[in-house]
């Protein structure tokens, strides 16, 4: 973090929290380029400020941050979204990841964890907390058990399930690599592919929905 600092935008409807996070990040050398408190201004300001990373709260008053993530993922392919959410928002977090968020961190995370997560998100690594891994595992199992999804539902390979379980139990990529006797890169590839399959499936779902309902562009 020397020459060009990572630029960040903080979206949260709670002013105290928003300013606190912004200060934490700028004190540690990030460039906080903008802040926003609702979906509409988040989308508008993001396309003007073009930050590297958007820190997105999902509970924005009456609206959900998922809409903002969809818009940002569509308009700004180079901007990565890190969801910073309070507990108890499961369906939302999964929707956010399917919409294109590349990571998720609970709000109770420490400042150091936050800094680390923003840095990794900016570098393109998915920030896969234990909590998100648990959700994703559950989602794959739900799809496998649900009769309506049939054969089209994406499935995890045995290795991917193994990696995902270890992530959900809080092991770092390095610890997983040691335990499974595979390389650190391979672990990250498994994680990335798990996430990508889920996003792709949700995009296929969206496209099919659009065609069926005559909303095809």
């Amino acid at each position: 973090m020397t020459e060009t600092p990572i630029s960040v935008m903080v979206v949260d409807d709670h002013p105290l929290w928003r300013d606190g996070v912004a200060r934490d990040l700028s004190e540690r050398g990030f460039e906080v380029r903008a802040t926003a408190g609702d979906v509409a201004s988040a989308v508008r300001i993001a396309s003007a400020a073009r930050p590297d990373v958007v820190l997105m709260d999902l509970n924005l008053g009456t609206a959900s941050g998922v809409e903002a993530i969809l818009a940002i993922a569509k308009d700004l392919p180079d901007t990565r979204v890190l969801v910073l959410s309070a507990s108890g928002e499961h369906a939302d977090v999964l929707e956010a990841v399917k919409a294109g968020a590349s990571g998720y961190l609970v709000k109770s995370a420490s400042a150091e964890e936050l800094v680390d997560a923003v840095q990794r998100t900016a570098e393109g690594d998915p920030v896969f907390t234990a909590g998100l891994a648990g959700l994703v595992l559950g989602e794959y199992r739900r799809m496998a058990a649900s009769p309506e999804s049939g054969d089209e539902a994406p499935r995890l390979t045995e290795r991917e399930t193994e990696v995902m379980r270890l992530v959900a139990k809080g092991l770092t990529a390095k610890q997983i690599a040691t335990r499974l006797k595979i390389s650190h890169r391979t672990v990250e590839n498994h994680v990335r592919s798990t996430l990508r399959k889920l996003q792709l499936h949700s995009r296929i779902d969206l496209v099919r929905y659009a065609i069926e309902h005559g909303l095809d562009e």
């Binding site: 507990s87 108890g88 499961h90 369906a91 977090v93 999964l94 609970v106 109770s108 420490s110 907390t129 234990a130 909590g131 998100l132 891994a133 648990g134 959700l135 595992l137 559950g138 989602e139 199992r141 739900r142 959900a168 139990k169 809080g170």
Partner: peptide, 20 residues
Amino acid sequence: LGGRLQMLRSPRVQVAVPGA
């Protein structure tokens, strides 16, 4: 059960549960 386990969450304890 997921909702009940989540209440155990603290700065030192992380809880991962399915969405459903």
